[in-house]
Design a binder for these strands. Structure first.
Lengths: 229, 229
DNA sequence: AAATGTGAAGAGGTTCACAGCG
DNA sequence: CGCTGTGAACCTCTTCACATTT
């Protein structure tokens, strides 16, 4: 199919994806930098070059990438010197929302829910479990490290008072959409979803889905071929 | 900084990233298509257009994207008609390694390990738990649904006989690198890592890391700003 | 001198629009 | 006709290389 197409008609760009010449920031990478800076602070390092930070973050990320990413946030480094570790970490922390605490509601308190609760409460000081919901009668009414476990049906009654801004959904796939909608209706603005479902939610809600089956399947493909990720 | 640079010196591309004009396939997306096709089969649909498949997979993916992705794998559709659901699913399944079963070793059998084991054994028919390792003496020697739980220290003795090709690492961050190296030494070729650690492994090993703290932090950023993901 | 910050080039991935074919 | 398959345009992201600043 050697299409020739309209050879050279003046075509003045029919669609403008980003009306403002908006900045493009890559959050996962900024988070990696933040973690690298945290480590540096722990080791007592106060100044880092883009090269050193790139090395810390690991393979794949170049010093040029680091500089490009950081320069978008303003002039953060000192030429000839490098970046002030503490100052930069603060700035990134603010941008990533890590300069304050967050309360999280967990819906679905099976093994995965337990795992996440433990992880958040003990490994991540910025995140706290604000509420737990499940439908298992033997769980409802009990407490997990002081946090009351409520019935999913009572979400509308209980959740608004808990001051949670994020929700984690670890319920079976067929319940995920309904749970997500109800969380949203209760004012939750961001969801971490572990159900292999494409959640349909209003645009104002931020959603991230972690799809374990998909991750595994990508690995199996790599096992087949000698491909790298 | 209005750099003018070397204005137009013929510069013949100094580095070749991909020596062969290699195809570029996006595995996560192919997996989504596969799932969409599975659903269609369940509903008894035998023919799908790129538009319909795109609609099933959800927002963000256009029919042009679907066609482009699929056409890379060969001529799979029928012009004027659409794609044969079963045939396409088979082809994608083969590519993704879903046409056979896989045995997985889980290292670290806390809540997260339990959650994954249950998920794999009961929700994903292609994946089976081949071995479980932990360092907790009260777990070692017991069985989980027939699978013996061995001590992590015995990995070299036990694992090779279990015929596992993939490993899941759910141990604490400081143990992850060592566990990953030992799994690799036992012949494991692909790892799913839940520790927030940059694993350094030989290039032949495929690694995917799921970083919960990073996911949450991206969500907090979205909560701050009104940005969408 | 050393390392940042940044236009410009390069590479990769996505969308367009139409040729090609059932 | 209708839908796939696809070259070309387009857009985004990364890398280069150097002007700039401390």
């Amino acid at each position: 199919m050697k299409s020739a197409r309209k050879p050279a008609a003046a075509k003045p760009s029919r669609r403008v994806l980003r009306p403002e010449g908006a900045a493009v920031i890559n959050l996962p990478r900024l988070f990696l930098y933040h973690r690298g800076l945290e480590d540096s602070v722990r080791e007592g390092i106060t100044l880092l070059t883009s090269e050193e930070l790139a090395g810390r973050v690991g393979r794949g990320i170049s010093s040029a990438q680091v500089r490009k990413d950081l320069s978008r946030l303003g002039p953060l480094g000192r030429r000839g010197q490098g970046y002030n570790v503490v100052g930069l970490m603060r700035k990134l922390g603010r941008l990533l929302g890590l300069d304050r605490d967050w309360r999280i509601a967990i819906v679905g308190f099976g093994y995965l829910g337990h795992a996440l609760a433990g992880f958040l409460e003990y490994r991540e000081e910025k995140f706290h479990i604000g509420g737990i919901f499940d439908s298992d009668p033997s769980l409802v009414g009990t407490r997990w490290h002081g946090v009351r476990i409520s019935h999913v049906d009572d979400m509308e009654k209980v959740l608004p008072a808990l001051e949670c801004s994020m929700g984690v959904v670890t319920v079976p796939p067929d319940a995920a959409q309904s749970v997500a909608e109800r969380l949203t209706a209760c004012g939750i603005g961001a969801l971490l979803n572990f159900a292999p479902t494409k959640l349909k939610l209003p645009a104002r809600v931020a959603v991230r889905t972690i799809d374990l089956a998909s991750e595994l399947s990508i690995l199996t493909h790599h096992l087949r071929r000698g491909l790298r990720d």
